[in-house]
Amino acid sequence: MSASILFDTPGPKARRRILMINIVGAIIALGVVAWIFFGLAGKGQMKPEQWDDFVQASTWKNYLLPGLVNTLKAAILGIIGSVIFGLVFGVGRLSQNKLINGFCTVIVEFFRAVPVLLMIVFFNVFFARSLELPGDTALWAVVAALVFYNGSVVAELVRSGVHNLPKGQREAGIAIGLTRGMSLRHIEIPQALVAMLPALIGQFVVILKDSALGYIISFNELLFFARTYSSPNGNVLQALIVTAVIFILINFTLSKIAEMVSKRLSSRVKKSKDAPAELVGAPAGALAAGSVDSAEKDPNNPGV
């Protein structure tokens, strides 16, 4: 009950009332779950044979795991590419050269505004027709789209991370004779990277979720395999739920890691300003917000 100070510590009467509402709330929640369950059962969606496919080794070995491997492959390549892209363009946006700065700004703003799905569809056809790529064209199309969008987001993280460092850092660097670029490389960016780590991990969740868009271009990822598998077996609904659960588990773990990193960092780096007390606990999505820059950059990024 101490999570919020939006309400008084309840007295005996309020406690009783809250208990009552609590029970009502729990009953409503259980009721909704039961309603969904019996609704599904009534429509013949709760038959054991529709579900036990997903506890069989062959289903996992032949469909879900190969799909998951492709999903993770796309996500990992996407993450690596985004970080490289983000570093290059983030530093580019910090450049004092107007041309470089302008170019990087246009690229970053452009790719942040274009839907990932549009890029996936385009790259798939473009790569298939114009470039000779090793392996699966669809994989490259998904990775390219993920890198351009998320790389641009990371570039913004790098830029705002550097902007939020105390000015003294750069001044000290220049005072000991470093050039502007050296100070960036050796002093500012390493610190910015550490500060943006939680937001970066949060972005990985977005990348992982976005990889499911590859389904639309028949990239053989988890969702694609799940529906290829379920179609001949007549359990699409069940397959979608199982796929969602797999995504949720992975993403939830990633979010928790980001939260942990964020906590560890905030205890390491004391905030310069007095942090205002918060009315409620930090929003889970904005986990990283506090440590980087809560006003300008919002890591509670819906992505897809």
Binding site: V83, G135, D136
Partner: peptide, 24 residues
């Protein structure tokens, strides 16, 4: 250090792509 991180990332990317490429 930054260079190292980038290089490591590049190597990892190459490793991943090469196992994707070998299929065909």
């Amino acid at each position: 250090r930054l260079g190292k991180v980038a290089a490591m990332a590049a190597i990892a990317a190459l490793a991943l792509t090469s196992c994707g490429g070998s299929d065909s």
